[in-house]
Every structure is written in C-alpha cells, then in structure tokens.
Design a protein around this nucleic acid. Sequence first.
DNA 1: TCCCCGATTAACT
DNA 2: GTTAATCGGGGAG
Length: 210
Amino acid sequence: MSRLGRRFCARPSLEVAPALLGHVLARRLPAGPTLRARIVETEAYEPEDPASHAFGGPTSRNAVMFGPSGRLYVYFIYGMHFCMNVVTGADGHGSAVLLRAAEPLEGIEAMTRLRGGAGLRDLCRGPARWAQAFGVDRALDGADLLGGEEIWLERCRAVALDEIERTPRVGIRKAAELPWRFVQRDSPWASRGGRTPTGRPTRSRATSPR
DNA sequence: TCCCCGATTAACT
DNA sequence: GTTAATCGGGGAG
C-alpha cells in the first residue's frame, strides 16, 4: 500500500482538495487497531482567503499551516471539537485542505467506541465527527503524514472529475461564495453541509449507506 | 483584562 | 426549523 507523497501535497490546495477524494486516511491508534476511511468531501483554504486560519499570517495556532506540506494541521473549534487538515503547497505558503467526511472502511468497532456509539453513517460524516472517530486531537497537530506512523494517507482509486461536485464551503461567513468545497456526487457519506443554488439539499435523504 | 465569535454537533420544537 | 454547549484566539481598551 503506497502513500500519497510530498509531490501530491506540495500543490495548491485547490488542486489537492479534489485530488484527495477516493484516497484513504489511515490512523494507527496507540497500542490499538488501524483505522481506515475513504475521503469523500474536502475544502480548500488559501492564505489570501479571509476564511482561512492562515489569513493574517503565522501565529502559534496556525504555525503548522506555514510549515512543510504533508503534515496534519489540527485545530480546536467551538470549545469542544477538533478538525483535521492536510497542509499543502510550498513550504511556508500557508495553505491546507480540510478533511470533512469519509466512508469508514476498517476499525469500525474502535471508531464507534470513540464516537460514543454513533451509527455507521455518522462515524465520519462531518469534520469534527471524523476527527473524534479517528482519536485525533491537539496532540496530533503537526503529525507527519508522509513518513509518520500515527496517521497517513494511502493511495487508492481517485474519484473521476465528472463525479466531483463543487460547492461553497460549509459554516463560514467570510468568502462564503467561493466554490472551494469538493464532494463526491451523491455520496451518502458526505456531510449535510452545503445546498444547491436552488436551496435543494445536496444529498437525497432517502439514500441509505450501502 | 474584556469581549466577541468561530472551517461544529446534538438535541430540541 | 432553532439553539445550547464550551473554550481559546486575537483585537480592543
């Protein structure tokens, strides 16, 4: 199983975000099983983007975003949640891709425990849910996805371009109009965020996983 | 020091 | 559909 490498990550976030769809995030729990989930939803963040944590330059909080690509940027939000990003672009650039939702593949039992007994469909559907299912918090901020053994990206089958839907990003107020969210079309594993321009839900409620 | 608000979620009506 | 939970970053005073 080969990993996604430096070359993959060292591109602009707007290229990496759609390219990540279909590949797999793997997580080795401390003295525990390995978890795997297939990425179905991402968002791009660039430093010139007012919605990005990198807007305004480096601080202690966002320092990892300004380091080399291929590392994990973890942030704490709303007083209770953690979210995961892949740092992208050239060293020092300050861009990243938010990992928003995934299809659980392996380690379902451990993920369910970490999520407090949530159902399969809700294990990784949303950025904070996914981080919780993977046992990821502050301690993994800056983790090396390229060569580390705690968390990494595995090359799998990329989602075809014509299966990728572009929408505005979820939950932001600044730069809310930019279509920088990428989601596998009709995936039941994608988060509820985002609506079509007509206001219809992005995803059919009738669709059930598997 | 004070204050506002956020790349969210779960539990409501 | 709405809202409470809960805390830290960062700008204003």
